[in-house]
Amino acid sequence: MSYAVIFRTISITALLLVAGLPLFSQPVAHAQVGDGTVTPDGPAPLTVTTGPEQDRELEKRAQGLETQLICPICPGETLDQSFVQISQDMKRILREKLLEGQDEDQIKDFFVDRYGPSVLAAPPRSGFNLVTWVVPPAAVALGIILLAFVMRGMRRGDADPVAAGVGGPVTEGDLSDYLAEVDRDLSLGGPGIATLDDDTGDNPGHNAERSAED
């Protein structure tokens, strides 16, 4: 019995390890950002860290925007990934505009006017670009319908039972029923041999439970 106890203990520990991790991770919104060592007009883009709660909220929005805009001169890097001068400048501009009270869309429009639509990390959901967004869900929906039809077809028996076992070496699947019979006839025991059959060794549960079910 003690082994079962150990096993349970390990299982529970592993589970807690897997599940409990986020408990230790504080979400961003709760973070204490900054202790005031900031000069807002320095030569580099600055994390907005001074001031009350709404400034932290603002910084969070600014960081969100950084991931949605592409650095115009680097291959496919978003602003938060890039440290070249132009993206440092853009980071500062978007913070200034947020401080002026502009919203995300206005700021994105501003950059699109300057650098063209490719400055957006994802195409806008309007006009021609709507196609980008619509095609994948449509394809998945179509795929589900197709899958349902295929499965129904397979279920009806779009199979070729005559070919089974004559075209070459048989598959394990072909043998499973036969093997089960052999096992019964020989009444072999022990793991590895008793689990020869598809319906026992490779399925959830142990032998007794399964055969009772069938």
Binding site: T67, Q68, I70, G76, T78, G116, P117, S118, V119, L120, A121, A122, P123, F128, N129, T132, W133
Partner: peptide, 11 residues
């Protein structure tokens, strides 16, 4: 559409 767009991580 003759327009350069970027499809990146957010998408």
């Amino acid at each position: 559409n003759n327009e350069t767009v970027t499809v990146s991580a957010p998408w």
